[in-house]
Amino acid sequence: MTPVQTHTRPPVHRRSGLATITVTIEVPADDPRLARRITAALGALSLSGGRVSVASEGVPAAPEGPTAPPQASAPRPALVIDVPGREVLVRGEPVALTRLEFELLAFLARYPGTVHTRAELLEYVWETPDTGIPGRTVDVHVRRLRSKLGEFDGLVGTVRGVGYRFARSRDVEYRTSPATPAVDRLLSI
């Protein structure tokens, strides 16, 4: 059996939910096939979204075998709405939103493509009936929200005479559960 050592450092990163795992495997120098199998298995693991770096010490270079075509890693969403963490990130940078701006964005993004009237927004975001709040309150908050979203201001669209809708986009990630550490994967070689 080959001695294997693993070390996870640091624990799972708070924002990304990723961990760095260092694995040291001692492979006999006279068994280059085992080293190729391990490298191929790690390459398959990296295709599932992780980054894998393989470094060898004192092992003669093995002839290259057929490899899978390189695939680009899954693109990171440009706009992240993290509901449990009450955080909005634009290209990894946090956006400072007020409580109502965050609630408005989270509500609209929860139902992309659905048009919401001002009365619905007052009821579900402000948690008050339509009466007693000035009619342009929703409009002012939407305008402020758009200015803070920068290049993504177009995601919050106006439906003239009706209300507002959040556009569907592949650049948006809407998180409804807290980031959990990646489940350990069993690697069969």
Rank of each mutant, 00 (worst) to 15 (best):
L79M: 11
V80F: 04
V80K: 03
I81S: 06
D82T: 08
D82K: 01
D82E: 05
V83P: 06
V83E: 07
P84A: 06
P84N: 02
P84G: 03
G85I: 02
R86C: 10
E87H: 05
E87G: 04
E87T: 12
V88E: 07
V88N: 08
L89A: 08
L89H: 09
V90A: 15
V90L: 15
R91S: 10
R91D: 13
R91M: 05
R91I: 01
R91K: 14
G92F: 08
G92R: 11
E93L: 14
E93D: 12
E93V: 13
P94V: 10
P94I: 07
V95N: 11
V95Y: 08
V95G: 09
A96I: 10
A96L: 13
L97N: 08
L97F: 14
L97S: 14
L100G: 04
L100D: 15
L100I: 13
F102W: 07
F102E: 08
E103C: 04
E103G: 10
E103M: 09
L104C: 12
L104G: 05
L105E: 14
L105R: 00
L105P: 11
L105K: 03
L105S: 05
A106T: 08
A106D: 13
A106K: 02
F107P: 01
F107T: 05
L108I: 03
L108W: 05
R110V: 00
Y111W: 09
Y111D: 12
Y111A: 14
Y111Q: 09
G113L: 03
G113N: 07
G113W: 05
G113F: 02
T114M: 11
T114N: 06
V115Q: 04
V115E: 12
H116N: 13
H116V: 00
H116M: 13
T117N: 09
T117Y: 03
T117P: 12
T117W: 03
R118A: 08
R118N: 14
R118C: 06
A119L: 12
A119C: 07
A119R: 00
A119V: 11
E120S: 04
E120G: 00
L121W: 02
L121R: 00
L122D: 06
L122F: 02
E123K: 00
E123G: 02
